[in-house]
Amino acid sequence: MNVALLVNPAARAGADTGAATHAAERLRAHGVKTAVISGGSAAESTELLRAAIALGSDAVAVVGGDGTVNLAIQEVAGTGIPLGIIPAGTGNDFAATLGLRELDVTAAADAIAGGRTRAVDLARVTRTDGSHSYFGSVLASGFDSKVNDRANAMRWPRGGSRYNIAILVEFLTLAGIPYAVELELPDGATERITGDLVMATVGNGRTYGGGIPICPDADPADGLLDVVLVRPAGRLRLLRLLPRVYAGTHTSVSEVSVRRVRSVRLNAPGVTAYADGDPIGVLPITVDVAREALTVFTPPPR
């Protein structure tokens, strides 16, 4: 097996070059031919990865977090080329969705070398110009995308705690946003929801922001997306809701509604959506399921 091992030192969290070296050594010890590729920017990394795939890489592995994994997803989605993840970023939410977040470098590399794979869904975002991108975990729009804006601009602290701080700061200017949400339900029926929302979140996976279970029941292998809508309430009530969000028990609160859908169209003025922690497009956008579009390496069952 020939593996292209992508490490992006320009990533915000900095893909750990020590982890990349360790992973490459471990893969080679298993007899896996491993080429380490690294770009100084996301665009350069994409070009290098495309070149490696064109030259005949059998698989792609990523050392890094959700942003670098998302970059690789764009290139391997729908190709059947398997993706291995060695979690080394700030959030690692897609790795968590796949049950890989707690793996150390050795265990993650061993899972790739073991060759065991499974197919999972991706979510596909289509913009008004017809362009599209994929994401693996969660798309945020509204309050939570503003939190991403703030968290991404923060230089300190590192790790998931900066999302917690960003959430509290954004509460100071919290307000409802006029949304139009169009849902295609599993039976093919449609539903339209209009009015002010604090946020509208779409989950292929369960968590974002370094482990916050915003879509606690989402399953990346069920052919559906989970849409979580939060209606406005007083700041104090929403602040009291936060512990339930962190516990994943918020979906039973009256201001929160959840739909399981085939696709969803989100429209709201002045809102940029984030997916896998990075901006993916200005609303309106449509999100649908790309069924079993990604093949991933997975550890053997315990």
Rank of each mutant, 00 (worst) to 15 (best):
L283V: 00
Y134Q: 01
T190E: 14
N2S: 14
A42I: 15
A109L: 02
F297R: 02
K146I: 00
A35D: 15
R206Y: 06
A24R: 13
S257Y: 04
P87R: 07
N70G: 10
L48R: 13
L185Q: 04
A54S: 14
R291A: 13
D144Q: 04
N267D: 10
R260S: 12
R116A: 07
V271E: 15
T173I: 09
P220C: 08
L122N: 05
R192F: 01
T97G: 14
N152I: 00
G14H: 09
S57G: 09
T46N: 02
R155D: 11
A15K: 10
A119M: 08
P82W: 00
P243Q: 06
I81N: 02
R12I: 05
E292C: 03
E75C: 14
R155T: 12
E75D: 12
R235D: 09
T207S: 14
V296L: 04
R118Y: 01
V289C: 04
E184W: 09
T173W: 14
S38T: 11
A153V: 00
R235S: 03
P300E: 12
L48F: 05
G160I: 00
V289E: 03
P216Y: 10
V7H: 10
R26W: 00
V3P: 06
I81P: 03
N2L: 11
A88G: 12
F297M: 05
A123N: 08
L139F: 05
V7S: 03
S161I: 02
A29R: 14
I112M: 06
Y246R: 02
H132P: 01
L103F: 06
F171P: 01
E75L: 15
R124L: 09
G65E: 07
R240Q: 13
A109C: 06
I37C: 09
V261L: 14
R28F: 09
D93M: 02
E182T: 15
G210I: 02
V62I: 07
R235H: 12
I214W: 08
L5S: 04
